[in-house]
Write a protein that binds this DNA or RNA. Sequence first.
DNA 1: GGGATATCGTTCGTATACGAACGAGGACCA
DNA 2: TGGTCCTCGTTCGTATACGAACGATATCCC
Lengths: 151, 151
Amino acid sequence: MARPSTAAETPELADENYDLAEQVGFIMRQAAQRHVSIFNEIMGSDLTPTQWAVLARLYQDGGSSQNLLGRQTAMDAATIKGVVDRLLKRKLVQTKPDPEDGRRLIVELSPAGVDYTRELLPKAETVTKVTLAPLATNQRATLIALLKQLR
Amino acid sequence: MARPSTAAETPELADENYDLAEQVGFIMRQAAQRHVSIFNEIMGSDLTPTQWAVLARLYQDGGSSQNLLGRQTAMDAATIKGVVDRLLKRKLVQTKPDPEDGRRLIVELSPAGVDYTRELLPKAETVTKVTLAPLATNQRATLIALLKQLR
DNA sequence: GGGATATCGTTCGTATACGAACGAGGACCA
DNA sequence: TGGTCCTCGTTCGTATACGAACGATATCCC
Protein backbone atom coordinates (compact mmCIF):
# COMPACT_ATOMS: atom_id res chain seq x y z
CA MET A 1 0.00 0.00 0.00
CA ALA A 2 1.43 3.37 -0.96
CA ARG A 3 1.87 5.89 1.81
CA PRO A 4 -0.06 9.13 1.60
CA SER A 5 2.29 12.05 1.13
CA THR A 6 1.22 13.60 4.42
CA ALA A 7 1.57 10.41 6.45
CA ALA A 8 4.02 10.19 9.29
CA GLU A 9 6.42 7.39 8.56
CA THR A 10 5.35 4.85 11.16
CA PRO A 11 3.74 2.12 9.12
CA GLU A 12 1.87 -0.42 11.20
CA LEU A 13 2.33 -3.38 8.95
CA ALA A 14 -0.65 -5.12 10.52
CA ASP A 15 -3.06 -2.84 8.68
CA GLU A 16 -1.29 -2.61 5.36
CA ASN A 17 -3.41 -5.38 3.92
CA TYR A 18 -6.63 -3.37 3.95
CA ASP A 19 -7.71 -2.68 0.40
CA LEU A 20 -10.94 -0.74 -0.01
CA ALA A 21 -11.60 -2.25 -3.43
CA GLU A 22 -11.71 -5.75 -1.88
CA GLN A 23 -14.21 -5.07 0.92
CA VAL A 24 -17.66 -6.60 0.53
CA GLY A 25 -19.43 -3.41 1.45
CA PHE A 26 -17.73 -1.41 -1.25
CA ILE A 27 -18.22 -4.04 -3.93
CA MET A 28 -21.83 -4.53 -2.94
CA ARG A 29 -22.47 -0.79 -3.20
CA GLN A 30 -21.09 -0.79 -6.72
CA ALA A 31 -23.17 -3.80 -7.74
CA ALA A 32 -26.26 -2.11 -6.29
CA GLN A 33 -25.49 1.08 -8.21
CA ARG A 34 -25.29 -0.81 -11.47
CA HIS A 35 -28.58 -2.50 -10.67
CA VAL A 36 -30.33 0.82 -10.02
CA SER A 37 -28.90 2.17 -13.24
CA ILE A 38 -30.34 -0.80 -15.16
CA PHE A 39 -33.63 -0.33 -13.34
CA ASN A 40 -33.87 3.30 -14.41
CA GLU A 41 -33.04 2.50 -18.01
CA ILE A 42 -35.68 -0.19 -18.33
CA MET A 43 -38.47 1.02 -16.04
CA GLY A 44 -38.15 4.67 -16.97
CA SER A 45 -37.07 7.45 -14.67
CA ASP A 46 -40.60 8.13 -13.45
CA LEU A 47 -40.49 5.24 -10.96
CA THR A 48 -37.80 4.43 -8.40
CA PRO A 49 -36.81 0.96 -7.15
CA THR A 50 -38.36 1.59 -3.75
CA GLN A 51 -41.59 2.88 -5.27
CA TRP A 52 -41.70 -0.23 -7.42
CA ALA A 53 -41.13 -2.42 -4.38
CA VAL A 54 -44.20 -0.90 -2.76
CA LEU A 55 -46.36 -1.36 -5.84
CA ALA A 56 -45.21 -4.95 -6.35
CA ARG A 57 -45.78 -5.85 -2.72
CA LEU A 58 -49.28 -4.39 -2.71
CA TYR A 59 -50.05 -6.13 -5.99
CA GLN A 60 -48.93 -9.47 -4.62
CA ASP A 61 -50.57 -9.38 -1.20
CA GLY A 62 -53.08 -6.53 -1.20
CA GLY A 63 -53.22 -3.65 1.25
CA SER A 64 -51.54 -3.48 4.62
CA SER A 65 -50.79 -0.89 7.26
CA GLN A 66 -48.13 1.64 6.34
CA ASN A 67 -45.52 0.50 8.84
CA LEU A 68 -46.02 -3.18 7.98
CA LEU A 69 -45.70 -2.31 4.32
CA GLY A 70 -42.44 -0.62 5.16
CA ARG A 71 -41.15 -3.74 6.88
CA GLN A 72 -42.15 -5.88 3.92
CA THR A 73 -40.27 -3.61 1.53
CA ALA A 74 -37.25 -2.98 3.78
CA MET A 75 -37.94 0.63 4.68
CA ASP A 76 -38.25 2.23 8.08
CA ALA A 77 -41.31 4.22 9.12
CA ALA A 78 -39.89 7.56 8.03
CA THR A 79 -38.84 6.31 4.60
CA ILE A 80 -42.05 4.44 3.75
CA LYS A 81 -44.07 7.54 4.58
CA GLY A 82 -42.27 9.59 1.96
CA VAL A 83 -42.64 6.85 -0.66
CA VAL A 84 -46.35 6.40 0.05
CA ASP A 85 -46.88 10.16 -0.04
CA ARG A 86 -45.33 10.38 -3.50
CA LEU A 87 -47.37 7.44 -4.77
CA LEU A 88 -50.49 9.05 -3.30
CA LYS A 89 -49.75 12.25 -5.19
CA ARG A 90 -49.67 10.21 -8.40
CA LYS A 91 -52.88 8.39 -7.40
CA LEU A 92 -51.27 4.97 -7.80
CA VAL A 93 -52.12 4.20 -4.19
CA GLN A 94 -54.93 5.07 -1.80
CA THR A 95 -55.23 5.05 1.99
CA LYS A 96 -57.95 4.61 4.58
CA PRO A 97 -58.02 4.30 8.36
CA ASP A 98 -58.03 0.80 9.83
CA PRO A 99 -61.47 0.33 11.48
CA GLU A 100 -59.97 -2.19 13.89
CA ASP A 101 -56.99 -0.10 15.05
CA GLY A 102 -57.17 3.67 15.26
CA ARG A 103 -53.41 4.00 14.94
CA ARG A 104 -53.13 2.25 11.61
CA LEU A 105 -53.36 3.63 8.08
CA ILE A 106 -54.21 1.03 5.45
CA VAL A 107 -52.40 1.49 2.13
CA GLU A 108 -53.60 -0.26 -1.02
CA LEU A 109 -53.28 0.05 -4.79
CA SER A 110 -55.78 2.26 -6.58
CA PRO A 111 -57.41 0.74 -9.68
CA ALA A 112 -55.03 2.84 -11.77
CA GLY A 113 -52.18 1.53 -9.64
CA VAL A 114 -53.20 -2.06 -10.33
CA ASP A 115 -53.18 -1.45 -14.09
CA TYR A 116 -49.90 0.42 -13.92
CA THR A 117 -48.23 -2.31 -11.88
CA ARG A 118 -49.47 -5.05 -14.16
CA GLU A 119 -48.12 -3.25 -17.20
CA LEU A 120 -44.71 -2.89 -15.59
CA LEU A 121 -44.33 -6.49 -14.42
CA PRO A 122 -42.67 -7.71 -17.64
CA LYS A 123 -40.19 -4.84 -17.50
CA ALA A 124 -39.42 -5.64 -13.88
CA GLU A 125 -38.61 -9.20 -14.89
CA THR A 126 -36.30 -7.84 -17.55
CA VAL A 127 -34.49 -5.72 -14.95
CA THR A 128 -33.60 -8.83 -12.97
CA LYS A 129 -32.58 -10.67 -16.11
CA VAL A 130 -30.28 -7.90 -17.32
CA THR A 131 -28.80 -7.41 -13.86
CA LEU A 132 -27.85 -11.08 -13.69
CA ALA A 133 -26.81 -11.31 -17.34
CA PRO A 134 -23.04 -11.36 -16.59
CA LEU A 135 -23.47 -14.56 -14.57
CA ALA A 136 -23.91 -18.14 -15.73
CA THR A 137 -27.24 -19.72 -14.84
CA ASN A 138 -25.96 -21.73 -11.90
CA GLN A 139 -24.06 -18.73 -10.57
CA ARG A 140 -27.26 -16.71 -10.35
CA ALA A 141 -28.85 -19.07 -7.88
CA THR A 142 -25.61 -19.19 -5.91
CA LEU A 143 -25.41 -15.42 -5.64
CA ILE A 144 -29.00 -15.08 -4.50
CA ALA A 145 -28.58 -17.83 -1.93
CA LEU A 146 -25.47 -16.18 -0.52
CA LEU A 147 -27.02 -12.73 -0.43
CA LYS A 148 -30.04 -14.08 1.40
CA GLN A 149 -27.74 -15.24 4.17
CA LEU A 150 -26.47 -11.69 4.57
CA ARG A 151 -29.86 -10.15 5.35
CA MET B 1 -49.90 -14.83 -5.93
CA ALA B 2 -52.90 -13.34 -4.15
CA ARG B 3 -54.90 -10.78 -6.05
CA PRO B 4 -55.15 -7.26 -4.65
CA SER B 5 -58.69 -6.48 -3.57
CA THR B 6 -58.96 -3.64 -6.07
CA ALA B 7 -57.64 -5.62 -9.02
CA ALA B 8 -59.80 -6.30 -12.02
CA GLU B 9 -60.13 -10.04 -12.47
CA THR B 10 -58.11 -10.53 -15.62
CA PRO B 11 -55.01 -12.34 -14.42
CA GLU B 12 -52.29 -12.57 -17.02
CA LEU B 13 -50.77 -15.80 -15.89
CA ALA B 14 -47.50 -14.94 -17.60
CA ASP B 15 -46.64 -12.46 -14.86
CA GLU B 16 -47.89 -14.34 -11.85
CA ASN B 17 -44.44 -15.72 -11.16
CA TYR B 18 -42.93 -12.36 -10.21
CA ASP B 19 -42.08 -12.37 -6.52
CA LEU B 20 -40.48 -9.21 -5.19
CA ALA B 21 -38.74 -11.10 -2.39
CA GLU B 22 -36.85 -13.19 -4.95
CA GLN B 23 -35.46 -10.37 -7.11
CA VAL B 24 -31.71 -9.73 -6.88
CA GLY B 25 -32.15 -6.02 -6.55
CA PHE B 26 -34.40 -6.31 -3.55
CA ILE B 27 -32.25 -8.90 -1.81
CA MET B 28 -29.10 -6.92 -2.53
CA ARG B 29 -30.65 -3.80 -1.03
CA GLN B 30 -31.43 -5.70 2.17
CA ALA B 31 -27.93 -7.14 2.37
CA ALA B 32 -26.48 -3.67 1.86
CA GLN B 33 -28.72 -2.28 4.61
CA ARG B 34 -27.48 -4.87 7.04
CA HIS B 35 -23.91 -4.06 6.10
CA VAL B 36 -24.40 -0.34 6.72
CA SER B 37 -26.01 -1.14 10.05
CA ILE B 38 -22.96 -3.20 11.05
CA PHE B 39 -20.71 -0.43 9.81
CA ASN B 40 -22.43 2.14 12.00
CA GLU B 41 -22.29 -0.08 15.06
CA ILE B 42 -18.58 -0.76 14.77
CA MET B 43 -17.21 2.44 13.27
CA GLY B 44 -19.42 4.78 15.29
CA SER B 45 -22.11 7.01 13.90
CA ASP B 46 -19.72 9.92 13.33
CA LEU B 47 -18.45 8.44 10.05
CA THR B 48 -20.46 7.13 7.11
CA PRO B 49 -19.45 4.32 4.72
CA THR B 50 -18.87 6.76 1.87
CA GLN B 51 -16.79 9.06 4.05
CA TRP B 52 -14.73 6.07 5.10
CA ALA B 53 -14.30 5.05 1.47
CA VAL B 54 -12.77 8.45 0.74
CA LEU B 55 -10.43 8.32 3.72
CA ALA B 56 -9.32 4.77 2.95
CA ARG B 57 -8.71 5.56 -0.71
CA LEU B 58 -6.66 8.65 0.11
CA TYR B 59 -4.72 6.70 2.71
CA GLN B 60 -3.91 3.96 0.23
CA ASP B 61 -2.94 6.05 -2.77
CA GLY B 62 -2.49 9.62 -1.61
CA GLY B 63 -4.24 12.70 -2.99
CA SER B 64 -6.06 12.97 -6.28
CA SER B 65 -8.40 15.36 -8.01
CA GLN B 66 -11.90 15.51 -6.60
CA ASN B 67 -13.67 13.96 -9.58
CA LEU B 68 -11.10 11.17 -9.91
CA LEU B 69 -11.49 10.48 -6.22
CA GLY B 70 -15.20 10.20 -6.81
CA ARG B 71 -14.69 7.65 -9.56
CA GLN B 72 -12.37 5.63 -7.36
CA THR B 73 -14.94 5.55 -4.56
CA ALA B 74 -18.00 5.05 -6.79
CA MET B 75 -19.55 8.50 -6.41
CA ASP B 76 -20.53 10.98 -9.08
CA ALA B 77 -19.23 14.54 -9.11
CA ALA B 78 -22.16 15.96 -7.16
CA THR B 79 -21.97 13.32 -4.43
CA ILE B 80 -18.22 13.40 -3.90
CA LYS B 81 -18.37 17.18 -3.50
CA GLY B 82 -20.72 16.89 -0.55
CA VAL B 83 -18.63 14.17 1.07
CA VAL B 84 -15.39 16.13 0.65
CA ASP B 85 -17.05 19.28 2.00
CA ARG B 86 -18.11 17.47 5.17
CA LEU B 87 -14.66 15.94 5.62
CA LEU B 88 -13.14 19.39 5.07
CA LYS B 89 -15.33 20.82 7.80
CA ARG B 90 -13.93 18.21 10.17
CA LYS B 91 -10.40 18.93 8.95
CA LEU B 92 -9.75 15.28 8.09
CA VAL B 93 -8.99 16.33 4.53
CA GLN B 94 -7.41 19.33 2.84
CA THR B 95 -7.55 20.69 -0.71
CA LYS B 96 -5.32 22.72 -3.01
CA PRO B 97 -5.49 23.72 -6.67
CA ASP B 98 -3.65 21.52 -9.14
CA PRO B 99 -0.72 23.60 -10.48
CA GLU B 100 -0.78 21.59 -13.71
CA ASP B 101 -4.52 21.90 -14.42
CA GLY B 102 -6.52 24.94 -13.43
CA ARG B 103 -9.76 22.98 -13.42
CA ARG B 104 -8.67 20.44 -10.86
CA LEU B 105 -8.90 20.51 -7.08
CA ILE B 106 -6.47 18.17 -5.35
CA VAL B 107 -7.88 16.45 -2.27
CA GLU B 108 -5.60 14.78 0.28
CA LEU B 109 -5.65 13.63 3.88
CA SER B 110 -4.65 16.13 6.53
CA PRO B 111 -2.13 14.91 9.13
CA ALA B 112 -5.06 14.49 11.53
CA GLY B 113 -6.89 12.58 8.81
CA VAL B 114 -3.96 10.19 8.42
CA ASP B 115 -3.94 9.44 12.15
CA TYR B 116 -7.71 9.09 12.25
CA THR B 117 -7.75 6.72 9.29
CA ARG B 118 -4.96 4.58 10.67
CA GLU B 119 -6.78 4.22 13.98
CA LEU B 120 -9.95 3.11 12.24
CA LEU B 121 -8.35 0.52 9.94
CA PRO B 122 -8.71 -2.37 12.42
CA LYS B 123 -12.36 -1.52 12.95
CA ALA B 124 -12.92 -1.41 9.20
CA GLU B 125 -11.48 -4.90 8.93
CA THR B 126 -13.88 -6.00 11.64
CA VAL B 127 -16.81 -4.57 9.69
CA THR B 128 -15.99 -6.81 6.73
CA LYS B 129 -15.48 -9.79 9.00
CA VAL B 130 -18.80 -9.34 10.79
CA THR B 131 -20.65 -8.70 7.54
CA LEU B 132 -19.38 -11.98 6.12
CA ALA B 133 -19.75 -13.91 9.37
CA PRO B 134 -22.89 -15.82 8.28
CA LEU B 135 -20.95 -17.38 5.39
CA ALA B 136 -18.46 -20.23 5.38
CA THR B 137 -14.94 -19.29 4.37
CA ASN B 138 -15.16 -20.58 0.82
CA GLN B 139 -18.56 -18.95 0.35
CA ARG B 140 -17.08 -15.53 1.10
CA ALA B 141 -14.69 -15.67 -1.82
CA THR B 142 -17.48 -16.94 -4.03
CA LEU B 143 -19.79 -14.09 -3.10
CA ILE B 144 -17.15 -11.45 -3.71
CA ALA B 145 -16.21 -12.96 -7.05
CA LEU B 146 -19.84 -13.00 -8.16
CA LEU B 147 -20.52 -9.46 -6.97
CA LYS B 148 -17.46 -8.22 -8.84
CA GLN B 149 -18.98 -9.52 -12.05
CA LEU B 150 -22.05 -7.38 -11.42
CA ARG B 151 -20.21 -4.05 -11.35
C1' DG C 1 -4.34 30.93 -33.93
C1' DG C 2 -8.81 29.49 -33.08
C1' DG C 3 -12.98 26.78 -32.97
C1' DA C 4 -15.10 22.29 -31.60
C1' DT C 5 -15.08 19.16 -27.93
C1' DA C 6 -14.26 17.35 -23.42
C1' DT C 7 -13.40 17.59 -18.53
C1' DC C 8 -13.68 19.81 -13.95
C1' DG C 9 -16.03 21.61 -10.17
C1' DT C 10 -20.40 23.68 -8.68
C1' DT C 11 -25.31 24.21 -7.86
C1' DC C 12 -30.20 22.86 -7.89
C1' DG C 13 -33.91 19.68 -7.32
C1' DT C 14 -35.71 15.23 -6.05
C1' DA C 15 -35.63 10.75 -3.73
C1' DT C 16 -34.07 7.37 -0.61
C1' DA C 17 -32.25 6.20 4.18
C1' DC C 18 -32.47 6.48 9.02
C1' DG C 19 -31.87 8.20 14.01
C1' DA C 20 -34.46 10.74 17.25
C1' DA C 21 -38.32 12.69 19.29
C1' DC C 22 -43.26 13.31 19.68
C1' DG C 23 -48.40 12.51 20.55
C1' DA C 24 -52.21 9.27 19.92
C1' DG C 25 -54.03 4.82 20.39
C1' DG C 26 -53.93 -0.15 22.09
C1' DA C 27 -52.70 -4.12 25.07
C1' DC C 28 -51.78 -5.80 29.43
C1' DC C 29 -51.94 -6.39 34.24
C1' DA C 30 -52.26 -5.08 39.16
C1' DT D 1 -59.96 1.53 36.76
C1' DG D 2 -55.57 3.24 36.10
C1' DG D 3 -50.78 2.82 34.98
C1' DT D 4 -47.13 0.97 32.13
C1' DC D 5 -45.40 -0.30 27.98
C1' DC D 6 -45.65 -0.96 23.09
C1' DT D 7 -46.91 0.25 18.39
C1' DC D 8 -48.32 3.57 14.85
C1' DG D 9 -47.78 7.48 12.12
C1' DT D 10 -45.51 12.00 11.78
C1' DT D 11 -41.84 15.40 11.68
C1' DC D 12 -37.08 17.11 11.78
C1' DG D 13 -32.30 16.95 10.60
C1' DT D 14 -28.45 14.97 8.14
C1' DA D 15 -26.25 12.24 4.52
C1' DT D 16 -25.96 9.78 0.33
C1' DA D 17 -27.27 9.41 -4.77
C1' DC D 18 -27.74 11.27 -9.19
C1' DG D 19 -29.69 13.88 -13.40
C1' DA D 20 -29.31 18.31 -15.39
C1' DA D 21 -27.41 22.61 -16.29
C1' DC D 22 -23.73 26.02 -15.88
C1' DG D 23 -19.14 28.56 -16.36
C1' DA D 24 -14.19 27.92 -16.47
C1' DT D 25 -10.38 25.57 -18.26
C1' DA D 26 -7.82 21.98 -21.40
C1' DT D 27 -7.12 19.53 -25.40
C1' DC D 28 -7.35 18.52 -30.11
C1' DC D 29 -6.98 19.45 -34.69
C1' DC D 30 -7.57 22.11 -38.81
